[in-house]
């Protein structure tokens, strides 16, 4: 589960409000999975980089950016996500206009990776499924618009349905993941049920819950 920050224009005022919130409850953002939703703000790459930097200065590490212009994203910025589901428990400073992300049609293009994905490598394939014949190492990540199929061990991050595809799934032969996400819903390793460790599993979404089931 991730906390979503939705900045409002002007960013400077919003940051000031955020600082007030932080001073009231220090450590609020520590250790949380945090994303930022910039839908409708029309930020340029420079503005977005500045915002990410400002948040980092405040000790807020972003896991993803939602609603940004794809042109404005790139290396050095958190990965894009979309279709994250608001569960509306936490009020964010500067209530923003959240509109449901448009549901794109599921696409059919798929990406095949013959070997292993090594630590530090990131495979980004927003157009469809990703199949990895080897393993995904600790510190590596796969971000797919569709489902993710891993025939070796999953030790890194698997982010499926990143373009708003709730029916995407994650399959792996050996489950030791650091982070799982489907359609914007996240689970970090600490929340993952250890009884599936090392097993062949599939991961799917049931409503707002990430469900892991053994394959064998």
């Amino acid at each position: 589960m991730a906390l979503v920050l939705a900045p409002a224009l002007p960013i400077r005022d919003w940051l000031a409000e955020l600082d007030t919130l932080r001073s009231r409850s220090p450590g609020f953002f520590g250790g949380r999975a945090i994303m930022v939703d910039v839908t409708g703000l029309g930020l340029t790459k420079a503005e977005l980089t500045a915002l990410v930097g400002d948040l980092l200065d405040r000790g807020i590490r972003l896991m993803g950016i939602e609603g940004a212009d794809p042109e404005a994203l790139g290396p050095g910025l958190p990965p894009p996500v979309s279709g994250g589901k608001s569960i509306g428990i936490l009020e964010t400073p500067g209530e923003a206009s959240r509109q449901p992300a448009p549901q794109p049609q599921p696409q059919v293009s798929s990406l095949m990776i013959e070997g292993s994905v090594r630590s530090g490598q990131s495979i980004l394939h927003p157009d469809g499924d990703v199949t990895v014949l080897g393993s995904v190492a600790s510190g590596a990540e796969i971000i797919a618009g569709g489902s993710i199929h891993i025939y070796g061990a999953l030790r890194g991050r698997a982010i499926a349905g990143s373009t708003g595809h709730a029916r995407a799934r994650i399959f792996c032969r050996k489950f030791e993941a650091e982070l799982l996400a489907i359609d914007g819903l996240y689970k970090a390793a600490d929340d993952l049920w250890s009884r599936f460790r090392g097993q062949a599993v599939q991961v799917a979404l049931d409503g707002d819950a990430i469900i892991i089931t053994a394959l064998d």
Partner: peptide
């Protein structure tokens, strides 16, 4: 040990 193994994995990625 785990940190050395992970860093080696990263290096193998760069070698490739």
């Amino acid at each position: 040990e785990v940190s050395s193994v992970r860093d080696s994995d990263r290096i193998i990625g760069l070698l490739d």
